[in-house]
Design a binder for these strands. Structure first.
Lengths: 409, 409
DNA sequence: AGTATTTACGAACGCTCGCTATCTATACTG
DNA sequence: CAGTATAGATAGCGAGCGTTCGTAAATACT
């Protein structure tokens, strides 16, 4: 019964294609309302066709009608304008960490309706599920979205996520944590598709969407842990499921991966804990340095970068060492992927230009096409934003009958 | 005048979609001929629609009609069967190296019609153009394809190729060689689109096509030079144009890329020349070894692997060293890409299991998901095959109006 | 050898849809 | 208050697909 090739059919298929084409055109210009004439121009369809499609979409609740714009003082009869009715299918993004739960609600147009964050001092797995439920209801209330309207949920989880089964390897930090339980729990609260993905992947998706356009993006999440997501022309690259695990890159000439350890060599070498440790050691060796002054005994990763920004040579040496190790580890992948840009997010990204310049200098020696090196502008919201983004993509893919639309906006 | 979104139109558009759908169904089952009833089943269209489309495609020369199969002893009136008329748009693949020119002609169904190879002791750029012309006409004659029928040409060139302009950086080996001249020259001989791409990319495309299906493939070409191509779900990944340049991966802790040098650190460390040099040195150090016996003074890369296969410890040590350096250089990229398979082709691939096992052992220590590690079955034909494949893809993309077809065969 | 059966091709009819052209409605301008 | 420009609504036409029926060609049975 499996039809091999979709793509043809009767005239009703054609109709659906055209309706989808109109809807897609509206989506592209969201949140700006569009006049029918503009839709005619953008879709290349005839006016009656577009009008009929718009009627249909209005009835189905996908579009909403606007009154004539008071600012639009043009000649002639004022045009009816339509725009995406975002609340037709709101989506939910989850970012679940051991100490923090973030939930975001977005409408179809990608407008953020609400964002609720709750921090705690480390929950148990059971408590965490409870907290997640609370935060979800809170976020939905704030967005004024009934639970039954939610069209898709994407949750972010650290570790390596099997895209379909939702199984997670290498789960850290929360004992007894199971993403399968999470999925079940959420599906119990909200009757809609629930998906799970790696947090670095989702952050990459968000950053790619913010940058827009095509090309290859390597988005590094750099905190205590180290991961990366790859987005190629808007699509996430997953490999067999574990793509982007840069934390496990070997650094020393004799490093190997220890399957028992949930952290990889590069994480141990340049993760935020390692940076702080290097800083503390340097402060001990050079008690006269600005670094030692700043940090004292409770020296933090941020202190290292602050001291380096003040041109303390001791701190600068630490940053140099970290940048060198990072660049050497990443350079092979940059040569292979040849990305348009490399974006660094996560806690360490707060270091700013000090670190970025040091890495950039190193990469210049080790790569052919030097990609743009940037800091993530999304800061700590990257993962939730990406989760919402992915949920949106899922909804659109499910709702739009036409598989591929040309992306020439 | 630029219409933003294609995808809708009148009924003629629908017709074109359906015709394309039928053509695509025939293509999928090539070279097996299909009955109309089978096409009806596979496309999901009604019989008259399919029949009309088939008529149209027969008139246009895309399909050819078969007599009833004598082996098909079924009841009832024998069905007319149609199959792809490969000669409707034959394509040409070129593999141009300093010492060897290979030209392949393929029909639309991917059947190899001819393959002509000519070797020489190093031509000048001018001579090379002449040789290329000769080999092309020879290959076309053998395939019985008139020059004016050729629908697309793809040429392989070493170095980094800008996909559109055809400009080449890092050209080695042939002084005065310009890929632009090549394109002009070929376009003079054959009036059709001529494209150029990196040889490693094309080899990767061929290997991916041979393996079939989806997933991520990292195809390494390992000879004197070292390059790789990445194919993700059938599509080549180019990055900004220089993806896959693994030859430039730094090996030593202080390696840097020298922009003046056309060869990169890894090439210098484990290219076939380097392997031979390591072998010669080992033979000098251990004149009693099997390696020294085999190779003598003119010791070759092949001798090293042969001696290692005979369990000569000296040669095995060399292989071990090479495998280690290669695996350490490639491991980061495998972690990032997480490919389904890594396939090694090129001259060094002739080493066989000795090298493969050594690399595999190393990679097991350095990666999370261990990809399948294989040798290319295509041997020296990989690049031409890939060139033909790419030319085919180009023709199909140009001819099929529908952008995306589901790939669930 | 003649008939029945099975399978496939071919043609006519009706339906839906989109495009062109025309007409009506609305608001601003002089 | 008339004129004009823009937008929305409506009728007619053409094209394509799907359904249905009739016909052709081969095999199997009597």
């Amino acid at each position: 019964m499996s039809k091999g090739t979709v793509g043809g059919g009767g005239t009703t298929m054609l109709r659906r294609i055209n309706v989808a084409s109109v809807l897609d055109a509206v989506r592209r210009s969201a949140p700006a309302p569009l006049r029918v004439a503009e839709l005619v121009e953008r879709t290349g369809l005839a006016r009656p066709t577009v009008a009929q499609a718009v009627d249909e979409l209005l009835d189905a609740g996908w579009l909403q009608q606007h009154g004539p714009d008071s600012a639009d003082r043009s000649l002639g009869r004022p045009a009816i304008r339509v725009s995406l009715r975002g609340r037709a299918a709101p989506v939910l993004g989850l970012d679940v960490g051991p100490h923090r739960v973030t939930v975001g609600v977005s409408d179809l147009a990608g407008r953020k309706l609400s964002l609720v964050r709750r921090s705690g001092p480390g929950w148990t797995a059971q408590e965490l599920l409870g907290v997640i439920g609370e935060v979800i209801t809170e976020a939905l209330a704030e967005a004024e979205v009934p639970a039954e309207d939610v069209a898709a949920v994407v949750a972010a989880s650290p570790g390596i996520v099997d895209e379909h089964t939702g199984r997670v390897q290498l789960v850290p930090s929360v004992p007894g944590w199971s993403a399968i339980d999470l999925i079940k729990h959420v599906r119990g609260l909200l009757d809609c598709p629930v998906m799970l993905d790696n947090d670095a992947n989702l952050a990459a998706l968000a950053i790619a969407a913010a940058r827009g356009g095509t090309g290859t993006l390597l988005a590094v999440q750099w905190g205590e842990r180290l991961g990366a997501g790859i987005v190629i022309d808007g699509r996430l690259h997953r490999g067999t499921g574990a793509a982007g695990e840069i934390g496990f890159i070997a650094t020393g000439p004799d490093d190997v991966i220890n399957p028992e350890d949930s952290r990889g060599p590069l994480e141990r070498a340049v993760g935020s804990e390692a940076i702080a440790a290097l800083g503390r050691q340097a402060a001990l060796d050079h008690p006269e340095s600005r670094l030692a002054e700043l940090g004292g005994d409770q020296l933090d990763t941020a202190d290292v970068f602050a001291a380096a920004a003040e041109r303390d040579p001791v701190a600068q040496a630490v940053v140099q060492q970290v940048a060198r190790a990072f660049a050497r580890a990443l350079a092979p992948s940059i040569l292979v992927l040849d990305p348009t840009a490399v974006v660094i997010g996560g806690g360490v990204a707060r270091a700013g230009a000090v670190l970025l310049d040091a890495i950039s200098d190193q990469l210049r020696l080790l790569t052919l096409n030097h990609p743009k090196l940037e800091l993530s502008a999304l800061a700590e919201d990257a993962v939730v934003t990406g989760a919402m983004r992915m949920a949106l993509d899922e909804v659109w893919q499910r709702k739009l009958p036409t598989p591929a639309m040309t992306s020439t906006t």
